[in-house]
Design a protein around this nucleic acid. Structure first.
Lengths: 186, 186
DNA sequence: TCACAAGTGTGACCTACCTCACATCAACAA
DNA sequence: TTGTTGATGTGAGGTAGGTCACACTTGTGA
């Protein structure tokens, strides 16, 4: 079975015909390490789904410090959602930390799909609620937990992340300096 | 026009008949200051919409410190979304900071409404995306800005909040001690 | 294959914010 | 009225985590 079907079926079950119809709205792309799929300032017309690889969505603040909003790995959705949903320019960039295989759907195709296929509207609605709750938990964790605990929670949740991405990016995600992160586990 | 119709019309336009149908799924409640609408440990079966008043959603961490996830004022939606969406027990509480007038819809009625009325599915989907983006911006702000700037941003966004709620709750929302907050504007 | 950039660890020092303590004042119930 | 509780300000001193500097190792592109 196509991995995207497996993924969607976790939330709404599709018949093979329905999935073919959905798949007809997606296109595949391969990207190499260091290539962008969204760049700050872009009009963002695509939402990506990760078949293989690892990406970061991030930006630099005005002191030049990098902040990471999200790592995206297999089965994750990624784009600049603010720009994608509200048709504005991206404030973040998304680029590949490894060579990646992605599927994407354009804004127009997504609109078409959601307005004609209730199941997919429900699928994305569920995803978006789950995203909201995850983001809320991250706020709670930033308010509540010291750096060491945030580090340990992340380690528990994604044990592979630490082998896959440089530590300074983990630090940028957790909101600590790379020096402090280094001392947390030494 | 009913304020809830005005609110929904901002995202999807409803005919009067459609709105009547929607309204048929809501019930009104009045609550006094200090009363709960969600308590930690509850099974959460209602989502509330604030017609009048002000509430907080919050919890205490294991050191006894209060953290505020959200203030809810006129036109805001509030409940414990994690519990409401995933049918689990509430980890947060929601209570009234003033006497409140609320409308609520039960989980079952919301399911009924969204599965039979595409417009309301779209309405809540949009709301939930907006919530995700807002929460993401709060994460960014926690990662990026020192306490003073977070305070000023909140002040700009909701100038009335500072007259409506005690400063220690503002501090609990911003993630600083009430002493530090006090020194930020003195 | 080699040069240069990127990743990582660690010491020394600094600072934003925390905690604890106490004082004042307003709100409100008996 | 008055006692109690909550809201707010402010001083003193402590600490988690930041910054800067340097060393060493590990990619990786020409």
């Amino acid at each position: 079975m196509h991995p995207l079907k497996t993924h969607i079926d976790e939330i709404v079950e599709l018949t093979d015909e329905e999935f073919e119809h959905v798949m007809g709205h997606f296109r595949a792309v391969k990207k190499r390490k260091h290539q962008f799929i969204v760049q700050e300032g872009d009009l963002v017309n695509k939402e990506f789904w990760v078949l293989k690889g690892c990406l970061k969505s991030y930006f630099f603040d005005d002191t030049g410090k990098e902040h990471i909003l999200q790592f995206a790995m297999e089965n994750w959705w990624v784009t600049d959602y603010d720009a994608f949903v509200n048709r504005t320019r991206a404030r973040t960039s998304v680029d590949c930390l490894e060579d990646c295989e992605l599927l994407y759907i354009t804004y127009e195709d997504r609109e078409k799909l959601t307005s004609t296929m209730h199941k997919m509207e429900r699928f994305w609605a569920k995803k978006s609620k789950a995203g909201y709750i995850a983001m809320q938990n991250r706020v709670l964790s930033l308010l509540q937990n010291p750096a060491k605990e945030r580090y340990e929670m992340l380690l528990n949740q994604y044990p592979h992340l630490f082998q896959r991405v440089p530590k300074k990016l983990i630090a940028a995600y957790l909101g600590v300096s790379r020096e402090t992160l280094s001392r947390l586990y030494s």
